[in-house]
């Protein structure tokens, strides 16, 4: 375990220092990674500033929801979501085999070699948005914080599940980086209060594909108005994670048995 952790840190260090070699672009990229995530908050602010609103939500509550979402993404993207581009890129170039011949789990190696330094900008953005909107609402109690922490952790594992599925898809759908577009379009539903959507969409994003858990559900817990169906959403997330692990291993098996 300790050696694995050290190996992971080594991967982070290598990624950071090679990225630092390109002056200018690194900081620029970090800021951009933050800016690309500002679409939903910007839309929200513009809507409220033009005198309209999401029914039942104040602007800062909505921004808090988006802050939670961005915080989860900000942790996921630099630290483990990189397995998606890493896998797609390696399969495309033929260097994925290099992971298969090393004496460690392929999944672990795919994570170690995929640290994405510029996505730290997302984390920075997440922290800022989360903190700013938190300061504009009544402070949550300890119980709310605990609930939030647990649900936020589930959100992270769910993002890990998404990463596994996208990376698995990338093994068979060679060179298709557009799986990111699919991901972004689907999780876009998670950036807004679920009540905005029709009943069928709500069911879809809580009970079939765990999207509400990525922002809406932890945010409502923190705001002290937990969403109905929180427990079932958590269950679905766990099942989703198990499914995605199985999916990844299945795709991996397909890859190694296809050979060459």
């Amino acid at each position: 375990m300790m050696t694995n952790f050290r190996l992971y840190l080594q991967g982070v260090k290598v990624a950071l220092s090679s990225r630092m070699a390109y002056r200018g672009d690194f900081f620029m990229s970090m800021i951009i990674m933050l800016l690309v995530e500002m679409g939903a908050p910007l839309l929200t602010i513009l809507i409220y500033h033009n005198g309209a609103s999401f029914p039942g939500w104040t602007m800062y509550e909505a921004l808090l929801l988006q802050g939670v979402f961005l915080l989860a993404k900000g942790i996921a993207f630099p630290f483990f979501f990189g397995i998606v581009w890493n896998t797609i890129g390696r399969v495309q170039e033929g260097t994925f085999d290099l992971l298969l011949i090393k004496p460690k789990s392929v999944l672990f190696l795919a994570i170690v070699t995929a640290f994405d330094s510029e996505d730290l900008g997302k984390l920075l953005g997440g922290i800022t948005l989360f903190a700013l909107s938190l300061s504009e609402i009544p402070p949550p109690g300890l119980w709310e914080w605990l609930q939030f922490a647990a649900l936020f952790f589930i959100a992270l594992t769910t993002l890990f599940g998404f990463a596994l599925i996208l990376a698995g898809l990338g093994i068979v759908w060679i060179g298709n980086f557009r799986v990111y577009d699919i991901f972004e379009s689907v999780v876009n539903f998670g950036k807004y209060p679920a009540a905005l959507f029709s009943k069928s969409v709500q069911t879809m994003i809580t009970l079939i594909i765990p999207i509400a858990i990525l922002g809406y559900i932890p945010a409502t817990a923190l705001l002290g108005k937990p969403a109905a169906g929180t427990w079932s959403a958590v269950t679905v997330s766990v099942v989703f994670l198990l499914f995605s692990l199985w999916f990844w291993h299945w795709m991996l098996k397909k890859y190694s048995s296809a050979g060459g």
């Binding site: 609103s53 999401f54 807004y192 009540a195 969409v201």
Partner: peptide, 16 residues
């Protein structure tokens, strides 16, 4: 992707 993004927009604006 196109229609899914559009759907989110449609829901948001309908609520607004």
């Amino acid at each position: 992707v196109g229609p899914v993004f559009f759907l989110t927009q449609a829901f948001i604006w309908r609520a607004v």
